[in-house]
Nucleic acid binder design. Structure first.
Lengths: 240, 240
DNA sequence: TTTGCGCTGTCATATTTATGTCATGTTGGG
DNA sequence: CCCAACATGACATAAATATGACAGCGCAAA
C-alpha cells in the first residue's frame, strides 16, 4: 500500500462581506476550524483575491454596496477559470426567492442569517466534501495518458511517470484547459499563483521538463508551442 | 497621413413596448446617442423584426399584453439564431423577483423604470461593449475554414494550418473586415500597428504567405487583389 | 546536525522560425 | 504591345523558443 499519510493542506476560504464585524465573526469561526481565511470587503477586492489566491471556497454576502453578491456570483460562474470555485451565499433575506435565484445562478449552498458558527462550519465542510469528490472524481484520460488526481499519479501506457510538483500542476492545468492558448504570464498566474515575480522564460523550462517527462512514447506534441502567443495543450495531434 | 476616416456602423436597437409614448421617449434618446432605432409594439412584431433586421440589441418591456416580455425573452434564447442577441429588460416592478427571473432567463441587463436617458444609454453601451468583447472570442467559420481565437488556431477541413504571427493577425483582420477593399497603407496600420515604417510591398509578401497557407484545398481566392486599390477578403468566390 | 538528493529558477547558448527587402518573373488594361 | 502593378522565390537578419548546465534551497534520512 501507499503512504496515505499525506497532510491535508488547509483549505483557503474567502469571506466577502462589506461589514467588518461579520467578517471578523466568520473569520474567527473558520480559523478555529482550521481553515485559512481571506477577506474582501467588496466585489472588486473579492474578484482580485479570487484570481490571485484561488480560494477553495467563497462565502459571499448577498447584499453589498456596489456590485451585489449575486452579480459577482454570476460573473464568477461565467468565467471558465473561476466557474468551478464553490460559492456559499450568505443572506439576511429569508425569502425563498433569493435562495432559488442564488442556487440557480450556481451557488453551492445558501445560509440564511442569522446562523451559528457550528452550522456555518458544517455547511462549509459539506460543500467542500461534495465538490472535492467531484473535482477529484474521474481520472483524466487522454490517449494513453492517465492523470489520476486521487492517486496523484500520472501514467502513460501503464508506466508510471515521475513529475515534479510544478510539472504536475502544469499538466493538471493543461488537462483542465485544453485546446486553448495561454500566454506565459497567464500560465505563471494559474500554475504558480498570482503574486510571484518570475522570469517568464521559467515557463519555457518547465514546459520542456513536462514534455520530456511525457514523451515516453510519441506523446510529445500534446504540449504545443504557439509562437508569439504562448502554449496550448491539444489532444488532436497537429500532424497529418 | 492615411485615410483613417472609417465610419463606425450604427448599432441597430429594437425597442419593444406596447406604449407608444415610451417607445417615442426611448427612440429619441437612442437616436440622439447615434443609434439606429427600430420599434415593435408587441411580441409578434418584435419577433418578426428581430428575424428580419437582426438588431444588435433589444430593449424589451417586461409587461405587455399578450405574450409577455419574459416569454419572448425565453423564446429568443431558445432559438440558436437569436440566442446571442443581447437583451435588456425594462420593468416597472422594482422587485428582486423580476430582475432575477429576467437575468436567469438570459437577459443581459435589467433597467427598472423610471430611468434617465443617460442611464439607459450608459447601460446599452455597457452591454454592447461586453458583447463585443465576447464576440472576439467566438470562432469564425467561413466555408471549411475555422478561425479560433481562443485556441489561436486556424484549420481548414479539420486540418490545422500553420501561420506565422503576422499572417495570423492579417487573417484575423480580414475575417473581421470582409467584403471591403483596404489599401496597403491601411493594412499596415491595422495589422502591423500605427507607427511602423515599412515598405508597402511588404504587405504583398504577407498576402502571398497567407494565401499559400490557406490554399490547401481550393480556398485560395478568399483573398482577392484589387488592382490599384489594395486587397479584399471575400467569402463569395468570384470565379466563373 | 550533517549529508545527500530532488526541485527550482536563471543563464548562456543553440536552434528554430518569422520578417522585411530585393531581384526577377507575370499579369492585366489601355 | 507596353507599362505599371502585382506575384513569387530567395535571403540575410532579427526574434522567439529550446536546451543543457548550474547553483541555491528545502527536506528527509542518517
Amino acid at each position: 500500500m501507499n503512504d496515505k499519510v499525506e497532510i491535508m493542506p488547509k483549505h483557503r476560504i474567502l469571506i466577502v462581506d462589506d461589514e467588518a464585524a461579520i467578517r471578523d465573526m466568520l473569520s474567527i469561526a473558520l480559523d478555529a476550524a482550521g481553515f485559512n481565511v481571506l477577506e474582501a470587503a467588496n466585489a472588486q477586492q473579492a474578484h482580485a483575491s479570487i484570481i490571485d489566491n484561488q480560494p477553495d471556497l467563497v462565502l459571499l454576502d448577498w447584499m453589498m454596496p456596489g456590485t451585489t453578491g449575486l452579480e459577482l456570483l454570476r460573473r464568477l460562474k461565467r468565467d471558465e477559470l473561476t466557474a468551478k470555485i464553490p460559492i456559499i451565499m450568505l443572506t439576511a433575506k429569508a425569502e425563498e426567492d433569493s435562495k432559488i435565484a442564488g442556487l440557480d445562478a450556481g451557488a453551492d449552498d445558501y445560509i440564511p442569517k442569522p446562523f451559528s458558527p457550528r452550522e456555518l462550519i458544517s455547511r462549509v465542510n459539506a460543500v467542500l466534501r461534495r465538490v472535492g469528490r467531484e473535482a477529484l472524481k474521474e481520472p483524466i484520460t487522454i490517449g494513453e495518458l492517465i492523470f489520476d488526481p486521487l492517486g496523484h499519479r500520472v501514467s502513460i501506457a501503464g508506466e508510471s511517470i515521475n513529475l515534479g510538483p510544478t510539472e504536475y500542476r502544469l499538466l493538471q492545468f493543461f488537462l483542465t484547459h485544453q485546446e486553448r492558448v495561454y500566454s506565459r504570464g497567464q500560465i505563471l498566474d494559474y500554475v504558480w499563483g498570482g503574486n510571484v515575480y518570475l522570469d517568464e522564460r521559467t515557463v519555457d523550462v518547465h514546459i520542456r521538463r513536462l514534455r520530456k517527462a511525457i514523451s515516453v512514447a510519441g506523446h510529445e506534441n500534446y504540449v504545443q508551442t504557439v509562437r508569439g502567443a504562448g502554449y496550448r495543450f491539444s489532444a488532436q495531434m497537429s500532424n497529418a
